[in-house]
Simulated scan of single mutants.
Amino acid sequence: MKIIAVGWNYRGHNAEMNQKETPQNPIIFFKPETALLKDGKPFFLPQFSDRIEYETELVFHISRLGKNIAGKFAHRYYDSVTVGIDLTARDKQAEARANGNPWDIAKGFDNSAPIGKFIPLPEQTPKADNINFSLFINGVKVQQGNSQDMIFHIDELIAYISQFYTLKIGDLIFTGTPAGVGPVKIGDHLEGYLEETKVLDFFVK
């Protein structure tokens, strides 16, 4: 399975990170399978970074094999959604960007992709046009977003990504984060919601 992630897909987050240009095409990167963290298992802060930040995202589950998928048919290729966290070693990312180097280790380290319980979506279109999601840390809401605010909708993302990579059943697409990212620390309790349903729940240790 592949974990496909999208950068700079919310204008609010782009602004808070001083990313002034709106991307003309989706910005794609990958996390390895070893990045996956699920079933409420704790996340252990790694020793190699002094600043691990959360980025709350909608994550879609690919349900059909596909290549070169037309946008009008893209809704047929995913069947469920959850909340995920794109944990980022912000100091490592800044260092790599400053030197003009790739920043894979800042995004793809072990357990950097916590995901929650998947919620089925309707088969008909539209199926992902108005999904509210949020993250609470220690009972306080720190981030919220809506799928309508994505620069590139999940159907557009699937059409674009499938030009270059065959999508397989079980692949996951992290669709980008809204404004409000910030650091995590030992003892933090993270809870992710789709609408009013809690789908993600884990601790930082």
Rank of each mutant, 00 (worst) to 15 (best):
88 T>V: 10
134 S>T: 03
95 E>Y: 14
1 M>D: 13
77 Y>F: 15
181 V>E: 06
23 P>N: 04
15 A>Q: 10
48 F>D: 12
166 T>A: 15
131 I>V: 10
75 H>L: 09
139 G>E: 06
189 H>A: 13
178 P>G: 08
52 I>T: 03
202 F>H: 07
74 A>D: 04
141 K>Q: 11
155 D>R: 00
58 L>P: 02
8 W>F: 07
95 E>C: 10
77 Y>I: 10
10 Y>R: 07
9 N>E: 06
187 G>R: 08
80 S>H: 09
91 D>M: 09
127 K>L: 08
21 E>H: 03
28 I>Y: 02
4 I>F: 08
33 E>M: 12
91 D>Q: 09
13 H>G: 02
21 E>Q: 07
35 A>H: 02
59 V>F: 06
40 G>S: 12
2 K>H: 14
126 P>A: 08
100 G>S: 12
115 I>Y: 06
127 K>C: 12
23 P>M: 07
108 G>H: 06
183 P>Y: 12
3 I>G: 05
150 M>V: 00
86 D>I: 00
63 S>N: 13
68 N>C: 14
65 L>I: 13
18 N>I: 00
48 F>Y: 10
10 Y>F: 05
10 Y>P: 00
161 I>P: 02
107 K>L: 10
155 D>W: 00
169 I>S: 11
72 K>C: 15
154 I>G: 00
186 I>H: 15
182 G>E: 05
95 E>A: 15
178 P>T: 04
143 Q>R: 06
181 V>D: 06
177 T>N: 07
114 P>R: 02
93 Q>K: 08
186 I>G: 15
118 F>I: 04
35 A>E: 03
30 F>M: 08
152 F>C: 04
17 M>W: 00
51 R>A: 13
46 P>L: 02
128 A>M: 02
155 D>N: 14
6 V>F: 08
152 F>Y: 12
99 N>A: 15
162 S>K: 05
31 K>W: 04
38 K>D: 12
60 F>D: 02
106 A>I: 03
193 Y>G: 07
171 D>R: 07
8 W>S: 06
97 R>M: 14
144 Q>N: 12
37 L>A: 09
126 P>F: 05
143 Q>Y: 04
49 S>R: 01
151 I>N: 05
8 W>K: 07
6 V>K: 05
95 E>D: 15
202 F>Y: 14
78 Y>Q: 06
104 D>L: 13
154 I>P: 00
53 E>P: 02
202 F>A: 02
59 V>R: 00
147 S>H: 09
4 I>C: 09
34 T>Y: 12
106 A>L: 08
92 K>C: 15
14 N>E: 05
68 N>F: 12
90 R>N: 06
175 T>A: 03
95 E>T: 11
64 R>E: 12
130 N>M: 08
45 L>I: 11
27 I>N: 01
56 T>W: 03
